[in-house]
């Protein structure tokens, strides 16, 4: 009498276990690696309608971030400047340059320049710029070295883990309030940073909330 099952079926349970383990590991690794803003967002560098260079304006010329982003200290939203702000200089500088056509038109007609937003947290995250820049968190912590970017790109993940990392230890990031827009500022040493950070945290009452409704309202 021949066997009902062929001989290779003896190895079947082992094969299934190995297969499931392999596929499981691969899927887990894939999700871990790919399903995060570190992969889905970081590096995003859209083509902007006007080739504005932060490296030239903020880096080389040394304009303060707040020359253009005037609302950042007062509002949850850091505004794109009106074209009239550009025209404060560009009514003289590169007056007839074709790259600035859109800016001139916008300043004359009031029609907005269709800038492409690079940094965008989900709509259920209520991030507030003013509370951060007024409590010693520099632009560079979330936006990266914008003053060296020819074209702005998404430098940091801005994921929830990224937010929480800092909210758990704000003393490692807070800096003197007059250095907020100085993107190249570095603390003297780690110890000095921690000492300043602890003191500032106390004096400025930096809460660095970690409860859900701090950000998800």
């Amino acid at each position: 009498m021949s066997a009902i099952f062929p001989k290779w079926t003896n190895r079947l349970p082992m094969m299934i276990i190995v297969g499931v383990l392999l596929v499981g590991t691969a899927v887990t690794a894939g999700v871990w690696y790919y399903f995060t803003p570190k992969y889905t967002r970081v590096g995003y560098q859209p083509i902007q309608p006007v080739p504005f260079s932060h490296a030239t304006h903020a880096g080389q010329l040394g304009l303060d971030c707040r020359y253009c982003h005037t609302g950042v200290e007062k509002s949850w939203f850091s505004n794109i400047p009106a074209a009239s702000t550009c025209m404060n200089c560009h009514n003289q500088v590169l007056k007839d340059d074709p790259r600035l056509t859109l800016v001139r038109e916008s300043a004359a007609s009031g029609k907005p320049i269709p800038w492409v937003q690079v940094h965008k947290v989900p709509d259920f995250v209520y991030f507030n710029h003013s509370v951060h820049v007024n409590r010693g968190i520099s632009c560079v912590e979330c936006h990266g070295p914008v003053d060296q970017m020819e074209e702005v790109y998404h430098a940091k993940p801005l994921s929830m883990a990224f937010c929480l990392e800092c909210h758990r230890h704000p003393e490692t990031k807070v800096r003197p309030l007059d250095k907020i827009t100085d993107l190249n500022w570095r603390p003297e040493s780690e110890a000095a940073q921690l000492e300043f950070g602890r003191r500032a945290r106390e004096e400025w009452r930096v809460e660095a909330l970690q409860n859900c409704s701090a950000c998800h309202r």
Partner: peptide
Amino acid sequence: AGRRLDDGGGTTRKPPIYV
């Protein structure tokens, strides 16, 4: 899918992915 660009791995024109 390529690799993450988080450690100075360059930039991309492709818009963010919403998983």
